Computed example of a mutant assay.
Amino acid sequence: MRQALAEQPHCISPKFFYDAAGSALFDRICELPEYYPTRTELALLDRHAEEMATLIGPEADLIEFGAGSATKVRLLLAAMQRPRRFVPIDISAEHLQGAAAALRRDHPGLDVHPLAADFTKPIQLPPMADGSRPQRVGFFPGSSIGNFSPDEAVGFLRQAAELLRGGGLLIGTDLVKDPALLHAAYNDAAGVTAAFNLNLLTRANRELGTDFDTRQFAHYAFYEPRLQRIEMHLVSRRTQTVRLGSERFQVMEGQTLHTENSQKFTVEGFRRMARQAGFTPGTVWTDPKQHFAVHWLAAPL
């Protein structure tokens, strides 16, 4: 947070949204009528889970990046052939443990091994109990890859290609579409996305001792067509001073804290990015309206 306040423009990673409260708010966002990505991707997984499971193969070691509530993976696990293990990775440890406990109850024969970690950094997976090395397959739904800059996205994919060597990655991407539909998805009528955005400041106050007045910041999200991305900001309603430890930072009226990008992709554009990172793109599943895509990427041997 200090770097975000000290540098111009003010910018912070969206990974800091996800404390327990932020994760719960995101779960609510996924249920909103305006937020099409979740229900569209769930429909694709429901319709094509068996095809995806065939590509994954039997007895796989399944790793989910940014698992959250681990809702979507249930459709995949139900179709998979004797999965050896499921490793959900998420930065929000409390939320992750709850999701893992629910999966253990519903899949008593499955080895569920949650890993509280920042998956944007190199991951060291725990060894299998029997010392074996089954085929590793990654699962990265929700188009969370869109939160990265293009260079960061390629960097993550390269890291994933190395981790999953000999296996593959099943990944969701939100597609370029009508800006009005995108605007509605990030500016819901119930104000849940605004609460999610503002919770970042509430978390900073609680964990870092800052004194943000959340009433003096407004949620602002818009589509930038030249960059093909949604940008999410918190706009200062007035000139104000924010305390962090012994330091004071002035935020001018109208200045923003840039909290998230959500990149939108074309199918072919993403396949080019995957090739650049070392994957071999395979099957792509899209919905009839071409709102969302799920890609199978084969990892290098």
Rank of each mutant, 00 (worst) to 15 (best):
M1C: 10
R2E: 11
E7H: 06
Q8Y: 12
L25R: 13
L25M: 08
F26M: 04
R28L: 14
R28D: 15
I29W: 07
E31Y: 05
L32H: 09
L32I: 14
Y35P: 00
Y36M: 04
T40Q: 04
E41G: 03
E41I: 11
L42K: 02
L42G: 03
L44W: 11
E50Y: 02
T54Q: 14
L55E: 11
I56H: 09
G57H: 09
G57R: 12
A60Y: 01
I63N: 07
G66V: 11
T71Q: 15
L75D: 12
L76Q: 07
L76W: 09
L77C: 11
L77K: 10
L77M: 07
S92F: 00
S92Q: 08
A93H: 13
G98M: 06
A102I: 08
R104G: 06
D106I: 02
H107S: 08
V112S: 04
V112D: 09
P114W: 09
A117P: 06
D118S: 06
I123Q: 02
Q124M: 10
Q124R: 14
P126A: 03
M128D: 05
D130P: 07
Q135H: 11
R136Y: 03
F139M: 04
P141N: 08
P141I: 14
S144W: 03
I145A: 04
N147H: 10
N147V: 05
F148V: 14
S149Q: 06
A153D: 03
G155S: 10
L170G: 03
I171S: 03
V176W: 01
K177I: 10
P179V: 00
P179C: 01
P179F: 01
L181I: 12
H183P: 01
H183A: 14
A184T: 05
N187W: 10
D188E: 08
A190T: 13
F196H: 11
L198F: 03
L198Y: 09
N199E: 03
L201M: 00
A204T: 07
N205H: 01
T210K: 01
T210Y: 09
T210A: 09
F212Y: 11
A218C: 05
Y220T: 11
F222N: 05
F222W: 13
Y223I: 11
E224M: 11
Q228N: 15
M232A: 08
L234C: 08
L234H: 12
S236D: 09
T239G: 14
T241R: 12
R243Y: 00
R243N: 09
L244Y: 12
M252H: 08
M252A: 14
L257W: 00
L257M: 10
T266Y: 06
V267D: 01
G269T: 10
F270M: 09
R272E: 13
R272C: 10
Q276T: 14
A277V: 02
A277E: 09
F279D: 02
G282V: 13
V284A: 05
T286V: 15
D287E: 07
P288I: 15
Q290P: 00
Q290Y: 13
F292H: 02
A293W: 15
V294R: 02
H295L: 03
L297E: 05
A299D: 02
A299M: 06
P300I: 13
L301W: 01
